[in-house]
Design a protein around this nucleic acid. Sequence first.
RNA 1: UGGGCUAUGGUGUAAUGGUAGCACAAGACAUUUUGGUCGUCUUAGUCCUGGUUCGAACCCGGGUAGCCCAACCA
Length: 602
Amino acid sequence: MAEINITEQEEKKSLNFIEQKVKSDLAEGKNGGRLQTRFPPEPNGYLHIGHAKAIAMDFGVAQKFGGVCNLRMDDTNPQKEDTEYVEAIERDIKWLGFQWGKVCYASDYFQDLWDFAEWCILQGRAYVDEQTSEEIAAQKGTPTEPGTNSPYRDRPAEESLKLFREMNSGNVEPGKMILRAKIDMASPNMHFRDPIMYRVLNMEHWRTGNKWNAYPMYDFTHGQSDYLEGVTHSICTLEFVPHHELYDLFVTWIKEWRGDKGDIEDNRPRQFEFNKLNLNYTLMSKRNLLILTKEGVVNGWDDPRMPTICGIRRRGYSPQAILNFIDKIGYTTFDALNDIKLMEAACREDLNTRAIRVSAVVNPLKLVIDNYPEGKVEEMTAINNPELRDEEGNTITEGNTHIIHFSRELYIEQEDFMEDGGKKFMRLGPGKEVRLKNGYIIACSDEQDEQGNFKCIEKDENGNIVCVHATYDPDSKSGMPGADRKIKGKTLHWVSCQHSIPCEVRNYECLWTCENPRDAIKQHEKENGVRGIDAMRPFLNPESLTINKNALIEEFAKELPALSYLQFQRIGYYNVDPDSTPEHLIFNKTVGLKDTWQKSGK
RNA sequence: UGGGCUAUGGUGUAAUGGUAGCACAAGACAUUUUGGUCGUCUUAGUCCUGGUUCGAACCCGGGUAGCCCAACCA
């Protein structure tokens, strides 16, 4: 009996409909009380956030109810699959924090499937069809009209068997013969109209080499693999609902072939379907993602704009952020379109607890503290993460700080100074007082010269502000009693001119300008007869990547390892790009901070 | 137009015949050395229609709308 180890907290939360089903199956002792699932990716591309939802389900439910989940590569089509993807898939699953029982391959079962197929032929349940694919398609009928039987449908089993073996000899041209299951050409379920079991490919398989020339189709592989592997709950997405009946049929056949004893209802895999993940402003299909990489729209599968796991990782999401998001949207049978904002919110929530706060100025404006001694440098203490708290809820400081240097000449954000910001502008300007984070309280004078120009502002010939001057209150140093006084202005972030490092900041927005790019592309393809990248172009966001090379960051950030979670204080969450070096620092913007000021329209 | 599936605030989800709740989003207030975080409050929902029932988001009938199925892909 599988051990059910749900924590109290989890038990309070309601189980989703699949977990409930698993729980009751275990309670009823189905499959001997065993729980086994599988995550079955086709190794023909990189895993994306939609797969993460499936992974969280397949591995999660096994984990939650004391079962095991295998990783099974669904490698029945050597035309599209590659070992490159296998490694990436394994890496991404591990990164998400899941462990498989074992790694399996559909190709592990090729021999069994072949023998089973021969048995089906001898049983009169399968036949070799020698028609062209066009002829077969024409006979298939339509959803509203029944199909017609193939002229080869009732050929002798011995003949089919002989031809089937020929199909694997390498001497049969692809397309000349297929093996079909003899079911019902009039079935309202299109999958029952004599589905194809085997086709000739005459291709080397990256795993089985030249052993096979004919390969089984998905429908003739999946349920049988589940059965042979001992899977009890075969969980997949909703588009496989129409396959469910066929899955069940082949499972009963294979049990018969194997001669396994016992009631079929008591020991067999069962398929369960949940809604797959749709995100607005996001394109998920592997086929289209491949086009984006090939056409150079993005810089590879791990481009931070990609919805791939590796792209999202490089963007700066933590595994927990992704898992929390998936947990929030849940599993149902409703075809939902999720708002990307929900994912961003889950990301902020998680990164808030783990990101190291640093000071970075992305659009620098020089600030001179006129009354601060020239050449003087002070070491200020900055908290790494204020959300790191002890039991009483106080921020832990021990080992949670770093040094930031303060001097006479600083950079602040251009946005943080306005000559005439108005009453609601709580930042710096003539006659305004603000606090510099971890530093001093400073103020700009509102003195004007004879022409009515503010003395604290230096402008270039075009009237752009190039430098501002302020004075500091020497008693207001952070941590000193004089720092306690309340001021009207906000607290600004800053870096010291002398102690900051130039860095490259890459800002990302959605790749798409429309909520549902998949449908938009499809429609555009249809209306204008264009395909591939040309059908996508009108919907691509030209500003999905903007690179800022003028940013400055405090020295502390120089040696942080790749993929470190950072918060540029008051701006957003950022991540150290894997290509970043101490000589050329690169940061990727993960997601901005919530900004109620900007939203209010200023 | 055949078959299958689905419909709960703007979005996602819970309530499994018995008080329509939660999260995000939006708005307001408070707090703040991040206009962040945390906290308090507000706005807003059972697709339509008939039935069964003491009682229906839930069960049944009929509409309507959306999704999936006619690959030698998975």
